[in-house]
Amino acid sequence: MSGTSATEYICKCTSACAGCSSSLILRHVLKAAGPDTVLVVPACCTSVLQGVWPNTAFNIPIYNVAFAAAAAVASGMAAAFESLGKNTNVIAYAGDGGTVDIGIQAISGALERETNFLYICYDNEAYGNTGMQRSGSTPMGARTTTTPGGKTHKKKDLDRIIAAHHLPYMATACSAYPQDLVKKVQKALSIKGPKFMHILAPCPPGWRYDSSQTIEIGKMAVKTGLWAMYEREYDNLTINGPTKAAMIKPTPLEDYFKMQGRFSGLKEEQIRTIRGEMERNLRMLKAEAEGC
């Protein structure tokens, strides 16, 4: 792929499920970041899929840390590199549970302290590693093992919580658009200070679809407008092409829901709520981009 090296930083293979989009994301994140990088990984699928001691599939230093601690550990690490005069990339790679729920205070602190690091949340919209329990990031109506009748609450608006820290760079991305993802990682790493990326990561067993459809589902999330792709540099918002297209001519939301078993019990009123939330989000983004 243009823009990144041919070098792979993950040895064949991890123990991730077949068709895991989080693995695809991390593969490209590491290719974009290059060898002078350390990863900080809290408890999540990514800690388990590395392999079992004394071997690992990852050919890059990784610190596996406690669930709530990724951003705190990354802060200490960034301070250590700075005092040594090193420009090593510090990247925290965490799940949605470890970000929107349990790790949120550590992230908020690191952003406030202007830690020089990139925090990436890969969002498979549940606690995947422990068997798909509901998280704050699970969308309304989705069946998980702890919401067998479908989640009754809405997905937490993580990105506006992060945006309230007025950081130098934040972006959303999706595993179905690796070139866009790579550009954003490279841009983030070229900026000093705290950076944040929120990346949608379809998960075949958790979302209940055939592993061959991982990319199609990610594209559909963007084409419906449900997953908005944008970049924010300080308070300057740029909406990315695929989301601009979705704002003009969106694919019906139902097309996205019917691809996934987890939405099989979705009720009409829930679809209305999700659509309302989605339209509000896109309206707010549009107004922000236009500077009003």
Partner: peptide, 23 residues
């Protein structure tokens, strides 16, 4: 798009590791 990076620059698939996801 191969999540596991088992397709090389000549588009040969390493079947020792390919998980058969179908992507």
């Amino acid at each position: 798009y191969c999540p596991d990076g088992v397709i090389d620059e000549n588009y040969e698939i390493d079947l020792v590791f390919c998980k058969g996801c179908g992507i």
